[in-house]
Amino acid sequence: MGTRVAVNQVLRLAVRNATISTLCPRQFGRYYLQSRWCCSSTNQATQHNQDLNPPSGIPVTELSLRSFIDMGFTESQAEQIYESLANVRRGDSAKHILPTLTALFVLGLNPSSVKKCLEKCPELYTIKEAQLQQRISNLRKMGLVEGSLQRVVAHYPRILTVPLKRVKNVVMFLKEKCLFTSQQVTDIIRDCPAVVLENLDQLEYKFQYVYFRMGVKQAEMVKCRLFRYSLDEVRCRHTFLERRGLYETPDKKGQTTIINPSLDSILNVDQDTFLAHVAQASAEEYDVFKRLAAREWQEEELQQGRTEPDSDDEDDDEDVDDDDDIEAKSGYGKRRKK
């Protein structure tokens, strides 16, 4: 069934349910009951009993398995949606499901994409219609054109659960703190929508890391979809290269004594390719390195949290250790004193 048909079906259903529910509750009850018959649930008997007397709180916009099939979902898809709906129902009502489905179909997603969205993000079942519309139109306003918008939603449906204010904050942050252009921000949201939920301090740190330590400019960050990767993924590969002598931080004039590999060749390849072609290292080395680096960074953070640096610079010139051994007692402190 084509998307348009599905949309029509959903809309029709929405209208009809609304009418039925207001005009003739009893009739709706029968409709509801009838639909449950079609349900191929395993424990029909018990369910049947419950269904005979639906509790009064039950939402008026109940949908049947049939109605999902009518929308264009296959039988098994319909069943799955139906079941997950039943799970969500407990808390809030599933009264938002119809507008959500409508919105997704109107966007142009086909039934199987819609189902995947719901699967990836069950919160969609409970979003208010007005909010949903606001969020979608905000994404449009940000310049996500048709096609992009669909892809973003299909790939990252959670974006529809993020409050408008939060999205706007992130956009502001990217523009003002990181100096991305509007178009670049649009591209970032399109390629790395999860960025809207990232902690801004961490985002800033990641940006600064790549900008200052790696000397990569905004345009390249966008092109390489930097924000798809976590800080640790980025700095793990970068630090590995840096320690091997294969990556240099550019000086003030932007110059390096070696040619740095591109951000793209560092990030957008699998580990084997990265090791073989960029780092020219063995998997064993990288494996050990990852474990060491994780520990180093963890300790760095702890240390920074505990003491402020830059203040302990008294010099003890004579009694210092400049050789390869340490005493057992002194343990592993980075700065060995006395």
Binding site: Y205, E301, P309
Partner: peptide, 14 residues
């Protein structure tokens, strides 16, 4: 929760 991470990020990197 992660707000507090700011004080954990190395000072020179902030």
């Amino acid at each position: 929760k992660v707000k507090d991470l700011r004080c954990l990020t190395p000072r020179r990197h902030r």
